[in-house]
């Protein structure tokens, strides 16, 4: 998960680490982003296209997202991770831009665990109660 948050974060003028992201995700992976305006259903290539468009449009010029809490449930070779996150302008910022929960499913593809599904709501509220719920997990 540390690697997941590292590859989607990037410094001013840079971009996500797409090569590393390809190693983290299964080639069958689906990525679903829920916003107030629409639901985006993408594969990794579509996700990259969306991020690159956001970069070109100047929606972001850098990006920092970190994990706040996590709940992991394993069912054989399937793992579900509920990972609470926050987006900030910089690691030392006192306030956040967005908070939410990344819902990930991973499968063991022989030599490694890979993400087959990533889903999040861009505008979900996140509070202490939600985090306590996550922390009571495994």
């Amino acid at each position: 998960m540390r690697c997941f948050y590292e590859v989607i974060s990037f410094k001013e003028g840079e971009a996500p680490d797409w090569a590393c992201m390809e190693r983290l995700f299964s080639r069958h992976a689906r990525i679903t982003r829920v916003t107030p305006e629409a639901i985006d259903c993408m594969d990794l290539s579509g996700f990259r296209s969306m991020v690159e468009e956001l970069l070109e449009l100047g929606a972001f010029t850098s990006f920092y997202e970190r994990e706040i809490a996590r709940r992991v449930d394993r069912f054989g070779n399937v793992i579900h991770v509920a990972s609470a996150y926050e987006v900030k302008i910089a690691p030392d910022a006192v306030d956040y831009l967005e908070r939410g929960v990344n819902s990930l499913q991973l499968v063991c593809e022989g030599e490694a665990w890979r993400i087959v599904s990533l889903c999040w709501d861009d505008h979900a509220s996140l509070n202490v109660a939600t985090l306590q719920l996550l922390d009571h997990g495994e």
Partner: peptide, 14 residues
């Protein structure tokens, strides 16, 4: 929520 900053550090893989 800053008290949760380290909560995940001891979590198991992944």
């Amino acid at each position: 929520l800053s008290s949760y900053e380290t909560a995940h550090d001891n979590a198991q893989s992944p």
